[in-house]
Each structure stands twice: as structure tokens, then as C-alpha cells.
């Protein structure tokens, strides 16, 4: 019986206190993110914030959503869609960032000419 319970627990991830510990860790990372956003870290700020955010993302997906313990097909299905999502985001930024900048330049020139 004890063996069965252990088996089920292993299949479905961690013990409750371990989940609470992970949650506390995520809260601490959020506080660090907040500190970074106020601190004057120059060009390090954006990569640090994005890195910490990505770390929190991976922890929640891996442990809270059990991808680390589940069938690999779930990971593949999600990773494929996530990759596509990130690529679409980057494509949109690449396409329209320039357009937005051009339209702003044009608008400012129009304002100055008036």
C-alpha cells in the first residue's frame, strides 16, 4: 500500500511542502525582479528581467504543470506551439517596429513643418 502511494506521488510530481517551497522561491524571484526594475543596472536590466521571467516560466511549466514528470508528447506539443508563438511575436516586432518608427518620424516631421 505504501509502495502504491509512493508510486502515485512520484507519477504526479512532488510533495505538498515541496510545491510550497517552489512557490516561495517564485515569490522571492518576483521581489528580485522588482528590485532590478528600480535599481540602475543599465544595459543588464532587460536581459536580467527576461532571464528571471523565463526561469519562472520554466519552473511553473515543468513542476506545477507536471511537464517534467509527464509523457514527452505533451512537452513536444507545447514546445512546438510555444516556439511558433515566439517566432510569430518576433516576426510581428520585426515587421512593424520599423513601420512604427517610420510613422513616428513622419508624424514629427509633419508637426515640425506645420
Amino acid at each position: 500500500m505504501a509502495h502504491g502511494a509512493e508510486h502515485t506521488e512520484q507519477e504526479h510530481g512532488l510533495r505538498p511542502m515541496q510545491y510550497v517551497a517552489i512557490g516561495a522561491g517564485l515569490a522571492v524571484i518576483t521581489i528580485i525582479e522588482l528590485w532590478i526594475s528600480y535599481a540602475d543596472l543599465g544595459s543588464l536590466m532587460v536581459p536580467l528581467l527576461l532571464g528571471l521571467s523565463a526561469f519562472k516560466f520554466v519552473v511553473v511549466v515543468g513542476w506545477f504543470m507536471h511537464l517534467r514528470f509527464d509523457h514527452r508528447l505533451y512537452t513536444q506539443a507545447f514546445a512546438a506551439s510555444l516556439t511558433l508563438g515566439v517566432l510569430v511575436t518576433l516576426a510581428l516586432l520585426t515587421l512593424y517596429w520599423g513601420d512604427a518608427a517610420d510613422s513616428i518620424r513622419g508624424y514629427r516631421e509633419w508637426l515640425n513643418s506645420g
Binding site: S81, L84, A100, I104
Partner: peptide, 21 residues
């Protein structure tokens, strides 16, 4: 949830483009 990544990714990209404008 994978399809939702595309959805939110597009919204975040749109926000970033227009915030600077």
C-alpha cells in the same frame, strides 16, 4: 494552451510596437 501562446504573443507584440509610438 499552445494556440493561446500564439494569441498572447501577438497581443504582446502589438503592445510593444504601439507603446513606443
Amino acid at each position: 494552451l499552445g494556440s493561446e501562446c500564439l494569441f498572447f504573443g501577438s497581443l504582446i507584440a502589438t503592445y510593444l510596437v504601439f507603446k513606443h509610438q
